[in-house]
Design a binder for these strands. Structure first.
Length: 214
DNA sequence: TATTGATCATAT
DNA sequence: ATATGATCAATA
């Protein structure tokens, strides 16, 4: 938290220079760069592993783009899905549950009119989900996991899930992964990931702000 | 204009 | 290839 408060107010360009990461001019080339910069600045493991970023602390780091009103501009990617493993996993053992047990949200200005390098980093929030929040996540996760396990992955759209959704997560539209079909055999489908809806992360941040002021 | 589906960059 | 970091851009 001390490190996080130390980077609040800096721009991505300034912080990127400190940690040796160049900020691209084109927005399309800068996807993820805010996360990379903040990872290095705060000393996260910075490895692409299915574990929390701060392994010893069990804390997952997420930058979150906020608009001028302080609301999330985008959904928050949580984890890739091992489609073949979903049938044998329950909520408490899921990677989503593990990653969301503790999350450090680091806000970043998101107005597309502001060049990436001029966007400022905000004050961080440490989110530990309440029982209510966990219940919402669990309900969505179990519904989606059951569909995948039963071979109905192709029936899943981004419309499903009140707070947690499943959406494509791939380098291109031609990517394919193994998944169970309706008879338990293999079918090939698009890689997918779990994402938190902006309305949910917005409500979470609003709660954390309220509690800060009380 | 909000949301879903598609895509971009880096690391192992 | 597949995980991480996400945002872009077409659609509803």
């Amino acid at each position: 938290m001390q490190r996080a408060s130390g980077v609040a107010g800096l721009t991505l360009g300034e912080l990127g220079a400190e940690v040796g990461i160049e900020v691209p001019d084109e927005g399309v080339r800068g996807k993820g760069v805010a996360g990379q910069i903040v990872e290095r600045a705060l000393g996260a493991s910075a490895a692409s592993r299915a574990e929390p970023d701060f392994v010893g602390l069990g804390i997952e780091l997420k930058t979150i783009p906020l608009d001028a009103r302080g609301k999330p501009k985008e959904s928050t990617f949580v984890a890739s899905i091992s489609l073949s493993a979903m049938a044998d996993t329950d909520w408490e053992h899921s990677v989503v549950f593990k990653k969301l047990s503790k999350v450090l949200f680091v806000p970043v200005e998101a107005a597309s009119s502001t060049p990436l390098r001029e966007r400022r980093v905000g004050r961080a929030y440490l989110w530990v989900p309440t029982g209510t929040e966990l219940g919402l996540l669990r309900t969505d996760w179990e519904r989606l996991a059951e569909m995948i396990g039963h071979g109905d992955v192709e029936q899943i759209t981004g419309h499903l899930g009140q707070v947690l959704q499943v959406r494509p997560k791939a380098a291109s539209g031609s990517a394919r992964r193994r998944a169970p079909d309706e008879e338990g055999a293999v079918q090939w489908t698009m890689p997918r990931g779990f994402y938190l809806r902006p309305s949910f992360t917005g409500a979470v941040l609003a709660r954390l702000r309220r509690e800060e002021n009380n």
